[in-house]
Design a protein around this nucleic acid. Structure first.
Lengths: 242, 242
DNA sequence: TGTACATCAGTGAACGCGCGTTCACTGATGTAC
DNA sequence: TGTACATCAGTGAACGCGCGTTCACTGATGTAC
């Protein structure tokens, strides 16, 4: 488990031995987050209530403050966990997909969708409307980029294996070349700006579709959305030159 | 103004004369919605509070029940207004854009983005994560489709003027042909299924980008997003064959 | 191994606040004759 | 045109509920010697 500053600020156990107290603390921290996730499903993030979580666990509400210094810190922990869990799914799917770039892209997209459908409220927590009054701290930034990094890796690998000069030559408007260039330099080395720009389009397309599906915008039109999703994923693969 | 069943259930004034009472009612209904929209911006939809709205208007909270039978009905009115306002912007942009399909598509996309950036919280209300515990009633369905209808109109016009047999011949997976066909029959007559499917991809792309921008997913990467947005809009225009 | 002290988890009461909704009421506006 | 009655907007108190956070406290666990 990632050591979250807010929840697990435990004095490092001397040696490898974990005291009973430390193990109990870890487990209860996990139980609090699990219960909070459960409540996310019925109440939504803005109404997530410390008191209700405590009640469900048979604790008194003030006891939670031994684990999370405030409601926002609990939210932060849930957000980081969600990003990490989604990121892990995407990375695992890419790793398991074999060598072809298109297969990897496809696997990554479907992993994102599957993850989101299995945990719609965690998805909403990280890709829905921002929770009013909550400001995400810096710790969330890195976990938030894992899917983008996974996709960029696929793009970089694809480009290295089979560059397409025609795509690389396309002009980009205004600041977009700079912006795409900065992204490429950081997480997709070797990928030309225009190809990176296309990758960013595909990236927003992916999450746009998942959000539409989960937030009910496809109701009665594209439901079930499986075939539409698969189709768009292939179209985007063409678009980014895989 | 659209006659909203919940708020304006006023006995039809005999003749064309509007009584002072009816005019006052209309104005106060409007003031309530305006104040509620203002609070949306600072609190977000889930925490929108009747009491706070009443307080801001110098009324007692129970007085609001003369205008909206419940909090959810106020929310519904705001949602319908938002869809209508966005739809109107899109329609107006298309109408003002001249004859070319590509120009119309472009105008429509930018109108959607501009509207959303000007009213981020109303956008979140209709395209963000669903408000927990709120179920949208049937009255919201028709206003919700206006942008889709506007875009479909552009697609139909474009196809009628310059059909592209190559696009029309593309295969679609599974149920997608049926689903796209049903949409085309309703709002884009004459447009072949594969072209409609592409239109649906472009449609999700549009809202995916706007959501990403407004919900902060582009932070520090694609900000300002103007050039990226413009680029994606042109790419999508190519994709749907405008 | 045994004891003294420090650390920590959890309790229960309290603070100060907010919410949606109902209800009996007053007084002004509108309508029918 | 004037009067009697019905309709309606807005009041103020109340119901029953929820929330995050603080604080002094008890008793169990862990640590140093």
């Amino acid at each position: 488990m990632t050591k979250s500053r807010t929840a697990d600020a435990v004095p490092p156990a001397p040696g490898a031995v974990r005291t009973a107290r430390a193990r109990a603390r870890e487990q209860i921290t996990r139980e609090i987050k699990d219960e909070a996730r459960r409540q996310l499903a019925t109440e939504g993030a803005p109404q997530l209530s410390l008191r209700a979580v405590a009640r469900a666990l048979g604790m008194v509400s003030s006891a939670l403050y031994r684990y999370f210094p405030s409601r926002d810190d609990l939210l932060t922990a849930l957000i980081i966990d969600a990003y990490d869990s989604l990121g892990e799914s995407a990375e695992a799917a890419v790793a398991a997909a074999g060598a072809g770039s298109r297969a990897r892209w496809r696997a990554c997209c479907h992993a994102v969708r599957d993850w989101a459908r299995a945990r719609p409220h965690e998805y909403a927590l990280i890709y829905g409307s921002p929770v009013p009054g909550y400001r995400a701290p810096k710790e969330t930034v890195v976990p938030a980029t894992r899917v983008a990094v996974a996709i960029s890796g696929v793009l970089a690998q694809s480009w290295a294996a089979a560059p397409r000069p025609a795509l690389a030559a396309e002009p980009l408007p205004g600041h977009l070349a700079d912006q795409a260039g900065r992204v490429a330099r950081e997480i997709a080395p070797g990928v030309p700006d225009p190809v990176m720009a296309r990758g960013l389009v595909a990236f927003t397309q992916l999450f746009g579709m998942v959000s539409f599906e989960l937030f009910g915008q496809f109701a009665n039109v594209l439901e079930p959305a499986d075939d539409f999703f698969a189709y768009a994923v292939e179209s985007m693969a063409d678009f980014i030159g895989l």
